[in-house]
Design a protein around this nucleic acid. Structure first.
Lengths: 207, 207
DNA sequence: ATAAAAATGGATTGTCCAATCCAAAAACGG
DNA sequence: CCGTTTTTGGATTGGACAATCCATTTTTAT
């Protein structure tokens, strides 16, 4: 449906699109590394090699930029993961997904947590629009997870409600990521996801 | 063990202790409602009915106040929950705990998330000391949960590793709270905790 | 009771930072 | 090509906010 509450300022040249993208990606990286409050417009300016005029030409204010960053992370994190999510229709698929997530955290040295969840936690109580945007991203993510489980259920391999299960898995993932970030140790994520797989497996049988 | 990295400025009068406490509780409430970045020292001043001198007499800077707030939430949230955690040695105990947490979120209209987890998420990448403090609070929480599970395990009622299980339950709780906060709906917390109880129950048998 | 220590009042300072403004250059469209 | 729109440069402003300072009052301890 893609209902747009705040339509973009209309026309964007190719060059404009590039500049806008440079700003958003720079901001996304900075906000992932240092949080929203820890990222100033000046930081973004420098990292994106842009001027004040450019920043405020493409974004009305910092909040607008934050919303663009959320949309970007939605696309990058959730969208970029959808091919893999499509394969979550078997225990092996779940295991592979889990392994990928754990390894990714290892590569990051457990820094940053979830790009979506962190933004959500920081903004939920201060920026209603941001909260709603993050809510949408989570819905999409949950729906991706649900897809595979639903397929298993249809095939008669899964004797549990795919709806509840998908929500549980996403929650466990978020909690695991948070604990992993706080403790700087992949074990929480690893153990939690493994438990989720076992939980799914407990309701699984070959048809 | 209570190892104190930064000892308090030594002597505190009874009145001083009161003032300090007024400041910490006011700051804790504000930071729960609006986040750390959304809480200014002036906000705290006003809410605590204190002056600048008082704030900076008891706390070297904002970061020191934040650390005090984390310690306070550790004591309040985790410590205040320990009596209930001690009863987590049966499925009924788990269910009661779960019911309490869900009802509490309902009372709060799903606002604020976890007082510890939210602080952790916001500060993890910008304040190393805060990250470590939150890490400690989570350890304590996890250990509380582990207690009951360990008792069940000793009694031969639980055929799973209490260590991993406690960590998983805490992660699920944190993730459930985050999703509940973001979606402004208790369902994620409810469903996720229920799944955890089922997961424990699946490894449970009367001896 | 009195000297020392602690607590408080409240104005002030200096910095950081979001946001604005006035042009000027570049790209687009007919 | 030429008028219009879009993009860019960069200096500036105004406010918010953390933190400091000096003086005064209150409490403690002997």
């Amino acid at each position: 449906m893609t209902t747009r509450t705040e339509p973009r300022p209309a026309k964007l040249t190719r060059k404009g699109e590039q500049t806008r993208m440079r700003i958003v990606t720079a901001a996304a990286q900075l906000m992932f590394d240092n949080g929203v409050a820890g990222t100033t417009m000046e930081d973004v300016k420098e990292a994106a090699q842009a001027s004040s005029s450019q920043l405020y030409h493409y974004f009305a204010d910092k909040q607008a930029l934050v919303l663009a960053v959320i949309a970007y992370q939605d696309e990058t994190v959730v969208g970029g993961q959808e091919p893999m999510l499509a394969r979550l229709d078997s225990i092996e698929g779940l295991r592979a997904w889990c392994g990928f997530l754990v390894q990714h955290q290892r590569d990051l040295e457990c820094r940053g947590g979830c790009p979506i969840g962190s933004l959500g936690g920081e903004l939920a109580e201060t920026d209603p629009k941001a909260r709603v945007a993050v809510s949408g991203a989570f819905q999409r993510w949950e729906s991706g997870i649900r897809g595979g489980l639903h397929a298993m259920h249809e095939r008669g391999e899964l004797a549990a409600d795919p709806e509840d299960l998908a929500l549980t898995i996403l929650a466990a993932l978020q909690g695991g990521l948070l604990l992993t970030q706080i403790h700087r140790d992949v074990r929480p994520l690893e153990v939690t996801l493994k438990a989720m797989i076992d939980h799914v497996a407990a309701h699984t049988a070959q048809p």
